[in-house]
């Protein structure tokens, strides 16, 4: 995921550059061998698991598929997944924009350390991410006694799920925006302020249009992870059916009960979400590539 911003730069279409040049052209059998092995590897390790989700989901037919999706526990899992994403994604957008504004538009000591800290949640195991909130809000945790005295449930309840989701999706928006806004510099904003625009006007009219594709890129990746998170949420959820189950946890329960077709039916919704995410991502890369090449020709 590191350097995902680099993908906003176009990196296709130059293959012909290498193939047209005699010095960089590989012989036909090298090409066949590299592509043959590489694409077989791709098909076995990436394509096959994706196809298997849908084949297994429809193994018992359309009716069983739909029945697994409209069952009350499945619906409540879908609802909780949407709630967790609807809270964590906007919060992490506000954080990402604010962090990128501070880091890209101002100089202050400790900036590199701050960027490293923002990346931390990506290198922490999801299970540890869940554990830290159990240590703070759990029955034996720092606030455990106070919370139970006041009858507030965080762990094994919705707030814990939301907190764990916020943690694992924490860096997505920030790490797309920081390099982008650093590269764009401060000149345009400074010009706007000098011409009398207010800070908010400058942000909405100058900064936001400049970073809209990068922001959207971060948001869709953040959303995909928020809806799909399993490990962290699994630690704090308590797996109470119909109450604290998100879609990935519901998949696990169905699978462990040997209801394979139903498990894969719910899983196929998440796989669809992944495909939609990848489509939007590819579209953004194409648009961003288009806009940079437009700038080059101007």
């Amino acid at each position: 995921m590191a350097g995902a911003a680099a993908h906003l730069a176009p990196h296709s279409g130059s293959a012909t550059r290498f193939e047209a040049n005699l010095a960089t052209r590989d012989t036909a059998w090298v090409k066949v061998a590299v592509l043959g092995i590489g694409l077989t590897y791709f098909a076995v390790f990436l394509l096959l698991p994706l196809v298997a989700v849908f084949v297994e989901a429809f193994r018992k037919g359309w009716e069983a598929y739909l029945a697994a999706l409209v069952e009350p526990d499945a619906l409540s899992a879908i609802k909780l997944t949407l709630i967790a994403a609807a809270i964590s994604v906007p919060l992490n957008i506000v954080f990402g924009v604010s962090a990128a504004w501070a880091i890209a538009k101002f100089d202050f000591p400790g900036k590199h350390l701050l960027i490293t800290f923002i990346d931390l949640p990506f290198s922490v195991s999801p299970v540890v991410a869940g554990l830290i909130y159990v240590l703070i809000f759990g029955a034996q945790g720092w606030f455990g006694t106070w919370l139970s005295d006041n009858d507030i449930k965080v762990i094994f309840a919705v707030p814990g799920i939301v907190l764990a989701t916020i943690f694992v999706t924490f860096p997505f928006v920030a790490r797309e925006l920081i390099p982008l806004m650093q590269a764009q510099g401060r000149d345009e904003e400074e010009a706007a302020i000098t011409l009398g625009a207010s800070g908010w006007q400058t942000f909405w009219r100058v900064t936001l249009p400049n970073v809209k594709w990068g922001l959207l890129y971060g948001v869709i990746l953040c959303n995909a992870r928020a809806m799909g998170e399993f490990g962290a949420v699994s630690v704090v959820s308590g797996h109470i059916r119909g109450e604290t189950n998100t879609m990935p946890l519901h998949v696990e329960i169905l699978y462990n009960e040997y209801q394979f077709a139903a498990a894969f039916a719910v899983a196929s919704l998440l796989a669809l979400l992944a495909l939609v995410t990848l489509s939007i991502k590819t579209y953004i890369e194409w648009r961003a590539g288009l806009s940079t090449s437009e700038e080059k020709t101007l």
Binding site: M1, S12, A15, T16, F18, E19, T24, D26, K31, V34, L35, L39, F42, L46, L47, P49, L50, V53, L221, A224, M227, G228, E229, F230, G231, M247, P248, L249, V251, E252, A267, L270, A271, L273, A274, L275, T277, L278, S279, K281, T282
Partner: peptide, 24 residues
């Protein structure tokens, strides 16, 4: 380095493990 049919699709699907929920 190479051009081959379906290249754009392969390129897009490389990121599948980032987008597909781990439980799935």
């Amino acid at each position: 380095r190479y051009t081959f049919p379906g290249k754009k699709l392969v390129d897009a699907l490389i990121d599948l493990p980032f987008a597909l929920p781990t439980a799935v």
